[in-house]
Amino acid sequence: MKVIFLKDVKGKGKKGEIKNVADGYARNFLFKQGLAIEATPANLKALE
């Protein structure tokens, strides 16, 4: 799953980066902790 990092995550990505991560890791950790959001077209446009 492609995500946009909202904060730096050690070993995974830095704020503003778009990367592929495992679906479960994204849903169960990154999204719940507020560290990333899904890289949807609307979210990508908002990032610009």
Rank of each mutant, 00 (worst) to 15 (best):
L47R: 07
P41N: 09
E38Y: 05
A46K: 14
A39F: 09
I18K: 02
E17M: 06
M1W: 06
F31Q: 04
D23P: 14
A46I: 13
V21K: 00
K7R: 14
V9D: 01
F31P: 02
V3K: 00
F5D: 00
K12M: 15
A39I: 03
P41A: 12
A39H: 05
R27D: 05
D8P: 04
G11Y: 07
A46M: 14
V3D: 00
F31A: 02
F29H: 12
K7G: 06
L35Y: 10
G24R: 11
K12H: 15
L30Q: 01
K32S: 13
K14D: 06
V9I: 08
K15A: 13
G11Q: 05
L35H: 05
G24A: 14
A42Q: 12
G16M: 06
G13A: 12
M1N: 05
I37T: 06
A39Y: 12
K12P: 01
D8V: 02
G24D: 15
E48M: 13
K7H: 13
E17D: 11
Q33F: 15
N43G: 06
D8A: 06
E17T: 06
F29Q: 09
K10T: 11
K45P: 05
L44F: 04
I18W: 02
K14H: 11
V3G: 00
G11N: 09
A39E: 02
E17Y: 02
Q33M: 15
G11S: 06
E48D: 12
A22F: 09
D8R: 04
Y25A: 06
K45Q: 13
V21N: 00
I4N: 01
G11W: 09
G16F: 08
V21R: 00
A36M: 01
A46F: 13
L47N: 08
V9Q: 01
A22W: 10
L47T: 07
T40N: 08
K19W: 08
K14V: 10
G16T: 02
G34S: 07
F31G: 02
D8T: 11
L30H: 01
L6R: 02
V9N: 01
L30A: 01
R27W: 10
M1H: 06
F5Q: 00
K2L: 14
A22T: 13
E17N: 04
I37H: 04
F5H: 00
I37Y: 05
N28G: 10
K15N: 05
T40I: 05
D23M: 13
P41F: 09
E38Q: 09
A26R: 02
K10M: 14
I18G: 01
K7N: 07
K12W: 15
I4R: 03
G11E: 05
I4G: 01
F29E: 14
I37N: 02
E48Y: 10
I18R: 02
A36G: 04
Y25P: 06
K19R: 12
K32Y: 08
K45R: 13
E38T: 05
L30G: 00
F29K: 09
K45M: 13
A46D: 10
G34D: 06
K2Q: 12
D23F: 12
P41E: 15
E38A: 09
K10F: 13
L30K: 00
K15T: 09
G16K: 02
K32V: 14
G16Q: 02
A26I: 09
K2E: 10
K10L: 13
M1R: 07
Y25I: 08
N20F: 15
G13I: 05
V21Y: 06
D8G: 05
N28L: 10
F31R: 02
A26W: 12
M1S: 05
G11P: 03
K7E: 11
K32P: 15
L35N: 02
F5I: 01
E48G: 12
A22E: 13
L35Q: 03
D8H: 08
K19N: 05
L30S: 00
K14T: 09
G11T: 06
F29R: 07
K14G: 05
V3R: 00
K2I: 13
R27E: 11
A26Q: 12
L44G: 04
L44P: 03
T40P: 04
G34I: 02
P41K: 10
N28M: 11
P41Y: 09
F5G: 01
K15P: 05
G11M: 05
F5Y: 08
F29D: 10
A46N: 12
N28Y: 11
G13K: 01
N28D: 15
A26V: 11
V3T: 01
G16Y: 08
L47G: 05
K15R: 13
K15M: 10
K14I: 12
D23E: 15
K19Q: 09
I4D: 00
K10D: 14
Y25M: 07
V9T: 04
D8F: 06
L6P: 00
I37W: 05
A42T: 10
A39R: 01
G11F: 07
L47Q: 08
K2D: 10
G34W: 06
E38V: 06
L47V: 10
A39W: 12
I18E: 03
K32R: 11
E48T: 11
A39V: 05
K32F: 09
K45E: 14
E17H: 04
F31T: 06
A42V: 09
Q33H: 15
F31W: 02
G16P: 01
I4Y: 08
G11A: 05
V21G: 00
V21H: 01
G11I: 01
K45T: 10
N20V: 15
G16V: 01
A42G: 12
P41L: 12
A46Q: 12
V21M: 09
P41G: 08
M1A: 05
Y25T: 06
F29S: 07
N20Q: 14
P41I: 10
F5A: 00
F31M: 08
G13T: 03
K32H: 09
N43W: 05
K10R: 13
G16A: 05
L35T: 03
D23R: 13
L47Y: 14
K10Q: 14
E48V: 12
A22V: 09
G24F: 14
L35D: 03
A46R: 11
V3I: 11
L44W: 03
G13H: 11
G24P: 12
G11K: 05
E48H: 10
A39N: 02
L30Y: 04
G13Q: 02
V3E: 00
D23T: 13
V9G: 01
A26M: 08
L47I: 11
A42M: 08
I4A: 02
N43T: 06
E38S: 07
A26T: 09
R27L: 14
I18V: 14
A39G: 05
A46H: 12
Y25Q: 06
